[in-house]
Simulated assay, not measured.
Amino acid sequence: MSVLDARSTGQHRGGASFSLGNRVFRLVWMVAWTLLAAWTPPPLRGWRAFVLRCFGARVGKGTRIYAGARVWHPRNLTVGDFVCIGPGVTVYCQGPISIGDYTVVSQGAHLCAGTHDIADPYFQLVTRPIHIGARAWIAAEAFVGPGVTVGDGAVLGARCVAMRDIEPWSVYSGNPARFLKPRVMRSAPDDTPPKGNAGAA
């Protein structure tokens, strides 16, 4: 999905950032989610996953995506198995966003894969992919910025702001996000043992 050239479209004056086809698709998607999914109770997680797949999202088995979550463009979303995306989560996938198996994205969190070139007089939109590894936790109202990789097993604390990569099996807090301590599991999960528990400062 290519971003339009701001010099031609005048994005700084309210011009379009994406093609007409892209905008029509997103309009149809928003109407479909509102009518088919946004009102559904939590147990209908399989139905919501089906609706997302119908619009191009890649959603793994056993995944719980709550009705109150907002996905900007489902074709840019890849979600692994047994993931939870909580109510009020914004998945602003102007660029690709991938979420690994067994990861939890808690209520009100914001994953933002788009930004602007602040040195460009036309305020060019720039998209950068976000990758969140397996068994990570993005806690309530945390923010993950464009181009950030959150490592396997990492924890981004509540209202934390990550504008740089987050190391695997580490706990971060604050704004900007700072390393707090390693995440050490008391015992390995029965299904898929983690590769390691060591965090990096």
Rank of each mutant, 00 (worst) to 15 (best):
V79E: 00
T34N: 12
G196C: 03
C93L: 01
V24T: 06
A69L: 11
A201G: 07
G56T: 13
E141V: 02
G15F: 04
T34M: 07
P43K: 07
P129R: 11
A154Y: 03
Y122P: 08
V148I: 02
V144R: 04
V51S: 14
R178E: 15
R70T: 14
G133N: 05
T192A: 13
A201K: 13
F50Y: 12
G15H: 10
G15R: 09
R64A: 14
T9I: 04
I132V: 13
F25C: 02
R23M: 08
T127I: 11
L77D: 08
V148W: 04
G60C: 00
I118N: 12
R183W: 01
L44E: 11
V161T: 08
G95I: 02
W137H: 07
C112R: 09
G114V: 13
G14K: 08
I99F: 02
R183V: 00
Y66P: 02
M1F: 09
T40S: 13
G62T: 00
Y172S: 09
L36G: 09
K195L: 10
W47L: 15
N22R: 08
P74W: 01
G88K: 08
R45N: 09
D120A: 10
A162H: 14
A109P: 05
G46Q: 11
V144M: 02
T103H: 08
R183Y: 03
V24R: 02
N197K: 07
V105T: 10
M30N: 13
P189N: 06
R58T: 05
R23A: 07
G151E: 01
